[in-house]
Design a protein around this nucleic acid. Structure first.
Lengths: 330, 330
DNA sequence: CTGTTAGCGCATTCAG
DNA sequence: CTGAATGCGCTAACAG
């Protein structure tokens, strides 16, 4: 069913049908009605691709996420989609996978689909390769990075001060009387790099020497990864008094490990995660966490992207401030 | 940059460029090389919409999810996307919202975008309204429902026997010596209706009278909803020995409530959830859960949809079998 | 107020 | 082996 089919049956020209569909003025009432009836009758819906072709506008936004199973990122995509849908944009959410090659592939797909804007979710997109890919494939559409940034004229970024956030966590544990503090990393990423920096700085400013800096890496970014890493920490340093984790998921694994090993949490050992996720409310004791302002970041990203779509303001870099949510694990 | 631009610079016709792009035979080697160089040079990418228009094929699949924040559903979408991406399809994942009106809107969007196949995630799409919408808007593309079914010629469904699954849970608790068993419902949905039925049947077959059937509904489908509902159960029936929850998330809220109220889990009170989600591994004690075969369902859905895209086999109804995963809460 | 024409970017005849 | 012409479904400019 095309506008021509409708036009023929209505005894008018295709352009008239087009005008009716798009509510353009200058059509006699009766004609408009007659066409509308046919449109209704055949449940006609314009082909978005054909329309996009002539309008030079697809009204599509691409949202790239390394792994859509990561709750934190999907939640953000949820907020962004909701905002942009209100404004008539259709968001296509895609999971790219972790390697630069896979990410590149999806960037190409977005180019082919001629999306009008792009959201890159998470710091994992902050690589030189991606920067090049954006330059060659997506240089003419606004790109907003959530918790990331690349210095390109069409790229904006919303960031959260995770480094000083973790720094504050170190001090917070100190104030609770915890001196010996370890850091558990779930995976490598620029974002986690900042967190490590915050940990290092915090420890240093509290007078810790190099040998007091205990950084452990999970074998996998998961509950089990956090559990195992925590076992390692506590075996090597049984006198550990506090552990900061790069994400809640690893931290809740850590809680379990600590309890299994007979530690009193928080009396003997204080645990802190990052993300303010639901995980921290499920575990027992409930997890103290660094709120990295997911919702606020998402809102900011959506509004910056929308401004970009309208051709206004670009190349912004917005910084949000994290804060500690105190619960039972400290 | 269009094929015409490339053609002009290469000194050939657009059709030649098109042939090169699509690896069609019958082009002199040198010509092919020359065009390829230009394609490379300008990072040319064909416009998917324009190509779709002439090919009458968009290579797009729509995946509709009521709420993309629901881990269980997003995970399934993740599997399906991965499968279909391998086969050259681009999946657009969208969150529709819970009401029929919102769902209808997204079904229309899929029609406009001329997707070639649709996945409907979860039993929430099993309504008469949606059935009508599919008939009018999506009658000519294969539709696969994950954990749902509608009797329409182009609709297939992958289902799991949640009713007999819950039935088995009742018997399992009985075998553990738990007689007084309540059921906590997180929200209304056809899927949850089946679970209630399984609970009712199980209780009845164990000789329970009507007054022994304790069904409680959460005020909200969340951790807190499960907590509050559990408090209600235990206040009204302090002698409860087992609670089955419609989802893990509510169950882990329930564990906390039970512990807060001084119950011994599992000694005094056995708790079971449904979904085999990560939540059940985070809480303490770890949650016994009914594995409803998410991954298997997703795989089946992807392969059925793919068959449909190829025009083979349709209107299937596949049934999978759930099984109890025993952990610490029972 | 409405019809005719052209063109969006591409793949595919059909000629040469 | 390659080019010219046509049309996919739609909107917009221009005539009438």
């Amino acid at each position: 069913m095309t506008i021509y089919d409708i036009a023929r049956e209505a005894g008018v020209a295709a352009s008239t049908v087009s005008r009716v569909i798009n509510n353009k003025p200058g059509i006699r009432k009766e004609t408009r009605e007659r066409v509308k009836q046919l449109l209704e009758k055949y449940d006609y819906t314009p082909d978005a691709a054909a329309r996009g072709l002539v309008m030079q506008s697809t009204k599509m936004i691409g949202i790239l996420i390394v792994d859509i199973r990561v709750t934190h990122h999907v939640n953000s995509a949820f907020f962004i989609e909701k905002e942009l849908a209100k404004r008539g944009y259709c968001c296509i959410i895609m999971g790219t996978g972790p390697t630069d090659e896979m990410k590149e592939e999806y960037i190409k797909i977005l180019q082919q689909r001629r999306v009008e804007g792009v959201i890159l979710m998470g710091s994992m997109y902050m690589t030189e390769k991606i920067k090049k890919n954006i330059q060659t494939h997506l240089s003419n559409v606004p790109v907003v990075m959530v918790n990331g940034y690349l210095d390109l004229p069409n790229v904006s970024g919303v960031l959260v001060d995770e480094d000083t956030g973790i720094y504050k966590c170190v001090n917070y544990l100190r104030d609770k009387g915890k001196q010996k503090i370890a850091f558990v990393l779930d995976s490598m990423s620029p974002s986690n790099g900042k967190k490590i920096q915050g940990y290092r700085d915090g420890m240093r400013d509290n007078g810790c020497a190099k040998e007091d800096i205990w950084i452990y890496k999970c074998r996998e970014s998961s509950l089990k990864g956090g559990y195992d890493a925590t076992v390692d920490v506590l075996k090597e340093h049984p006198d550990t008094q506090g552990i900061i984790y790069s994400v809640d998921l690893a931290a809740v694994g850590g809680i379990r490990a600590a309890l299994d090993m007979g530690y009193d949490v928080p009396g003997q050992l204080g645990l802190i995660g990052v993300d303010n996720s639901i995980y921290g409310e499920i575990c027992m004791p409930k997890l103290t966490t660094l709120n990295n302002k997911l919702e606020e970041m998402s809102e900011a990203a959506a509004s910056i992207l929308y401004a970009g779509l309208l051709g206004k303001g670009k190349n912004q870099k917005v910084m949000l401030y994290s804060e500690i949510i105190e619960r039972e694990s400290t």
